Amino acid sequence: MSNGRDRLRELLDAVLDEDNTTLGQMAAGAFSSPFHFARQFSRGTGESPVSLRRRVLLERACWRLGGGAAVTEVAFAAGYDSVEGFSRAYTRAFGHPPSATPPATGRTPRWLPSVNGIHFHPPMSLWVEGEPKGRSDMDPTALLLHHDLDDTRLLLKTAAGLTEEQYRRTRLAGATVLEWDGPEESIAAVLDHLIRTKEVWLASIEGADHPVRGGDDLPSLMARLDDIGPRWLDTVREIDRRGGWGDTLIDALCEPPESFVLGSVIAHVLTYSAYRRQQARYWIRGASPDDDTVGWGDPIDWLRRRD
């Protein structure tokens, strides 16, 4: 972006004006119709006005929470009508609830995945990473990490509509995804392995003991996901922050110990998570063919719903 005032800067100012909470108000602030405003803005940033405003305000909320601000105060400042609505949106975005936001250290940007490099910069301005290049600049790793956790949560919620027999029935005798993980013959087993693989790899990365295996009933799986999800995202963010994708992990949990490149570990987890999610989805749909809640697991549809 140039240092002088240009049309895109005016559009951004209209979006982030504290008084412009709707598309109509944003457009009026830029002296444009809502249709032409939205089209110009999306063409210039690769993101809708409402989506960018919501994301930047969530980034500001994270910064304020890290500085010790109260959740209620931050929620209403971010434009939410209730603390509950803010908490749900914040947890989906950052992988942990507002109350679990760590104190600000001044070292790590509290930014969400962006298609254009435009982010919140305190106290209420913007930071642009390089030159915006549209959707080719989207970080697929970050999107896939968030999609994996959100899609797993959707599968757990949908599986709650199954009977215990449907949930635990052997669907394919001897079905094995990875030899060392053992058979995954039921919906219960596949969902358990979806979460277990992150628990084990995170323990390896942290140098912790082999984690005790939790229950595979749905409430236990949801609790395990709530625990591992934020920690998994924070760990990957830290690897990315320090440029550690090529670092070598010596996994003492293997017998004998093995070495792995960290980037390949994340790729491994995402690859087999995608396969397991689709396997679970196929079996859940077969058990309840009249319920389309489970969807198709498409990251494109997921990203559109988030916008």
Rank of each mutant, 00 (worst) to 15 (best):
V71R: 06
V200A: 05
T158C: 11
V190G: 03
T197E: 01
S82L: 07
D240H: 06
P123D: 10
K198V: 00
A142I: 01
D290S: 15
V71P: 06
G263Y: 02
G95P: 01
D6E: 11
R224F: 02
Y272K: 01
F41Q: 10
G215A: 04
E185L: 01
A89S: 15
D6V: 10
L270S: 03
E184V: 10
L144D: 12
R107M: 10
V74Y: 00
A173E: 14
I195H: 01
G174M: 06
L52T: 05
D291R: 12
P299H: 07
P97E: 02
L23Y: 04
H119D: 13
L162M: 07
T197A: 03
E199R: 02
W201K: 00
G67D: 14
V294R: 08
S114D: 12
G95Q: 00
L270A: 06
D227W: 09
I284N: 02
T170N: 12
R88H: 13
G24W: 07
W111V: 00
T108R: 09
P122V: 00
S259L: 02
T293E: 08
F260E: 11
L65A: 04
P34H: 03
L149E: 03
A208G: 13
G79Y: 06
A78Q: 04
V265H: 00
V50H: 06
Q279C: 05
M1D: 10
A188C: 11
G46N: 13
E10A: 12
E206A: 09
D139F: 03
N116R: 07
D290H: 14
P299M: 03
L191G: 04
F260L: 11
G67Y: 10
D181V: 08
R5G: 07
R242A: 01
G246H: 13
L233R: 06
F41L: 13
D307I: 09
S51G: 12
E184D: 06
V128L: 11
P289G: 13
S51K: 14
P257G: 12
K198T: 00
T72F: 07
L11I: 11
T152S: 10
T21D: 13
L225I: 01
T176C: 12
R9S: 15
L156H: 05
V56E: 09
L218W: 03
Y167A: 05
W111G: 02
Q279V: 11
A27S: 09
P257V: 07
P113T: 04
G243R: 00
P109V: 03
Q278K: 07
Q279T: 14
K157V: 10
V261E: 07
R54G: 10
P123A: 13
V200S: 01
T45L: 14
S125H: 15
H121K: 14
L172Y: 08
N3C: 09
G130L: 11
H121E: 15
L144N: 03
A14F: 02
G66M: 05
L143P: 00
H268T: 02
T105Y: 01
R88T: 14
D307P: 05
C254W: 06
R135L: 15
D301W: 11
D148L: 07
L145I: 10
R53C: 05
Q25C: 04
F76I: 09
H193K: 07
G85S: 14
R135S: 14
W111T: 04
L155Q: 01
G106S: 13
A104M: 11
W63C: 12
S99W: 08
N20Q: 15
D247S: 07
V177I: 09
T45S: 14
L145D: 03
L218Y: 05
A61Q: 09
